[in-house]
Simulated assay, not measured.
Amino acid sequence: MTTLGLLHLVWERAGLHYWRPQFAGHRIDPKALRRAYATSSNIKIQRGITLDQVLCPVVSNDRGILYSTQRTIKDHSEKFRLYVIGRLSSAQADPYGKGYNIELSGVRDGYRMFMSISQAKWERLEKSHSRELAEFSRNEEGLSVFGLFLVTIDPIKNGKYKNFSSVQIEDAALMTTTEQLIPVESRYEAKIVELLVQEERTFIKPLRFDAARELVRPDFILTDIGKKEGYPMEVFGRTDEKYLARKAEKESYYARVFGSDNWWSWNAADGDPIPSLPDHALNQ
């Protein structure tokens, strides 16, 4: 599994790809990453090692998570590569020309990490996650970028920065999320999340993991309309020839599998208004 696949697995196991109205006001970074850490105990990354043993969440104002991360670094940094997870807050070119320096939200609140990535690995990250880095650069209100970083951590034992850690990023995966921490792949999808939340709907954002692009995967699935299989939703956001061919394949698939009236789509790239949503089931 790639690092992105692992990030998706962590998010799904923690239930962060799922939304219902009762979550409003409770889906915040500390609770989300605490849940991600707890559920990672069921993810085996190699024989005898579960993800929680090597996972270091970073978040502001949570002493429990801070203690857990500090303990993981102390107990395992000399034996294993670790995973750091958190919300991206800064990515700046190193002033000495040694790649980029990365900061996560909360890294200054006692985590004492100097995170860096080499120029070659940064360029690979730019290529594989250009969309997420573009969203981060735009700094659009309501959207954030979370990252999972495979790292080597060397505690600094002497000098001015004693008890800090030098963190070298070996691999990374980035994911854009809404204010509710729902992953999205475009600003069009973010608009749909905003609408669904406002309308107090219940839905799932299916995550791709490492699946091939040919796999038909809805952008969202409404789960409050009384159908066991849910109600697929697609946001069509491009107009290039290859994309339109793929769009036709998806339309044919949904019509065949769900019926022409049992799925929803928005032709966002054509400037169409957002269509009405299907009604709630009476028992929801």
Rank of each mutant, 00 (worst) to 15 (best):
A173L: 11
S90R: 08
P57K: 06
Y37I: 09
F164A: 01
L33F: 14
N267I: 07
T72G: 01
S40G: 01
G142V: 09
Q119E: 05
G99H: 00
V59M: 09
R256Q: 15
R131A: 09
E189A: 07
R187M: 10
A24F: 13
D109G: 15
V10S: 06
E140T: 10
M115N: 00
I221T: 15
D272P: 02
E123A: 08
R81D: 15
S68M: 14
S130Y: 10
Q22H: 12
L7S: 02
T178Q: 06
C56A: 15
F220S: 02
V197N: 09
N262H: 03
D240G: 04
T3Y: 04
N283A: 14
G86H: 03
A268C: 06
S60M: 13
E140S: 10
D52R: 07
R27A: 12
Y18H: 08
I225G: 05
G110C: 00
K250E: 09
N158M: 10
I65S: 04
P218V: 01
E123Y: 07
L215N: 13
A134E: 12
R138G: 04
N283P: 07
L195N: 03
I153R: 00
A173D: 04
D219I: 04
D270G: 08
Y254G: 01
P218N: 01
L66F: 06
A36R: 02
T178S: 14
K160P: 02
V107E: 01
N61H: 11
N61V: 13
V54T: 00
K227N: 12
L51W: 15
V257F: 02
K31W: 14
E194I: 05
S116N: 04
A211H: 10
D171K: 01
W122Q: 01
R246H: 12
